[in-house]
Design a protein around this nucleic acid. Structure first.
Length: 420
RNA sequence: GUGGGUAUAGCGUAGAUGGUAGCGCGUCAGAUUGUGGCUCUGAAGGUCGUGGGUUCAAGUCCCACUAUCCACCCCA
């Protein structure tokens, strides 16, 4: 197929026939977020490149090799946002949102852009539902945010979504731990990749999937043993709050996150219904981020939920989406006089919120009826010279074929659509 | 970025050993010129992913590229 009629690699059209699935997840996630007091925020698709370098961390893969970065005409370096947290944090600082009464709870839907090898469930442009909470220091906040994500899975009916949590401590205890970890790994036989990234990002080694490293990792020191008193108490309180809220989880001492801003609690929801890209939601606490970006230091935490992945899971599990609305009334018109009357009637019904249609394609009566059927029209009506002179028409229930006579006014037709 | 599979109409697909394309669904029209669903008849729709090569002849064989899928890496 010619280049111009093909979407760029790693992008995907959401077609009319499938869009009801998106509407379903957007509606449910929005309602849940709002019930938790979150307000929607919409931030730009691109930001200054430095925002992501500072926020996500210059040594991460996302920043080093996956960003869509370009110079604008004035030579400013801009980047299509690879994730949602940094932009939301920037906006919260810029507009003084964190200067108001805290906590500040935000949610958003956004496209994220990453230059990666595309795979199903991993696109170069993917969409996330995200939640960010600022100025909430209590462990209950961690539990609340996790619970929000969990509620989404419950309400959408997802089965077998596993929540894994861990604490990676504050910069203090993590520094201690990293030293120990590096010392440990230096005495081991590592795969090529791991030897490379040992100094740069030692905690990632815990996640290595190579068989040899898996063996090594069984004996690797675990962060939870190195947590300072404060971090340990926080993590313990998060876990008991989750239990009290009825959110089941497994502790996963090797769970680390790929972005630098995380502190203390990190978590991930995984689904067996996806392939290797099995994480459908991930997040954690990032108490240092706002200060790192130059704002008044306030605590932060949040998550991102991959919407393509979420929908893939729902499809794989055969879950229900809210069906698309179908047509309420199709008016077939037989001649040019009836055509105008039909058009007026259709307009008036639309003003009342009904989906009404009449012929625009120049079809004959039989074809118009077939088309009405394809639209899934609940009712149909035929207008010709007889109806115009009588001032009445027959309205037909397309499900059972029953017919009723109705006066040719929007008011009367409307009543018929409601009652019949 | 690495390794492997795949690419034929809008969608799903058939085309061993080379002889320039069928089928199902969908679309349109008619049977039924004032009533849909079922049925029947007919039609439209293909640069066989793109470009090159081998050959009298390529959807089929070879090379490159592109896209897609799976795994790695990484991540939501």
């Amino acid at each position: 197929m010619a280049l111009i009629t093909k979407a760029p690699r790693g992008t995907e059209d959401k077609l009319p026939a499938d869009i009801y699935k998106w509407h379903t997840v957007e509606k449910i996630t929005r309602a849940i977020a709002e019930s938790y007091g979150c307000k929607e925020i919409r931030t730009p698709a691109f930001e200054h490149t430095e925002l992501f370098q500072r926020g996500i961390g210059g040594t991460t893969d996302v920043v080093q090799k996956e960003m869509y970065t370009f110079d604008d005409k004035k030579g400013r370096s801009l980047t299509l946002k690879p994730e949602g947290t940094a932009g939301a944090a920037r906006a919260a600082i810029e507009h003084g949102l964190i200067a108001a009464a805290l906590p500040l709870k935000l949610f958003y839907f956004t496209s994220c852009f990453r230059y990666e090898a595309p795979q199903s469930g991993r696109l170069r442009e993917h969409r996330q539902f995200g939640v960010e909470v600022y100025g909430a220091v209590k462990p209950l906040a961690d539990a609340e945010v996790i619970c929000l994500a969990n509620d989404v899975f419950i309400q959408l009916g997802l089965k077998n979504v596993q929540l894994e949590i861990n604490s990676i401590g504050c910069s203090g205890c993590r520094g201690e731990y990293k030293k120990e970890l590096i010392d440990f790994y230096k005495q081991q036989n590592l795969c090529n990749l791991c030897s490379e990234r040992l100094e740069r990002n030692p905690m990632r080694l815990l996640d290595c999937k190579s068989d040899s490293c898996r063996e090594v990792n069984k004996n690797a020191p675990v962060i939870t043993k190195y947590l300072c008193n404060g971090c340990e108490a926080h993590f313990t309180a998060v876990k008991s709050a989750l239990t009290a809220l009825g959110v089941s989880f497994t502790e996963s001492p090797r769970l680390v996150r790929g972005l630098d801003y995380y502190t203390n609690t990190v978590f991930e929801f995984k689904s067996e219904s996806l392939g290797a890209q099995d994480t459908v939601c991930a997040g954690g606490r990032y108490d240092g981020l706002i200060a790192e970006l130059g704002g008044t230091p306030v605590a932060g935490l949040g998550f991102g939920m991959g919407l393509e992945r979420l929908i893939l899971v729902m499809q794989a599990q055969g879950l229900e989406f809210e069906p698309a609305k179908s047509c309420d009334l199709y008016i077939a018109a037989l001649d040019s006089g009836a055509e105008i009357t039909a058009a007026k009637l259709v307009k008036e019904l639309r003003e009342c919120g009904f989906w009404a249609e009449t012929d625009l394609a120049g079809r004959g009566l039989g074809a118009q009826m077939k088309y009405a059927d394809k639209l899934g029209a609940r009712f149909s009506m035929v207008l010709g010279s007889n109806e115009l002179s009588n001032g009445t028409a027959i309205i037909k229930n397309m499900q059972n074929g029953e017919k009723r006579e109705v006066g040719l006014s929007a008011e009367k037709v409307k009543l018929c659509l409601i009652e019949f």
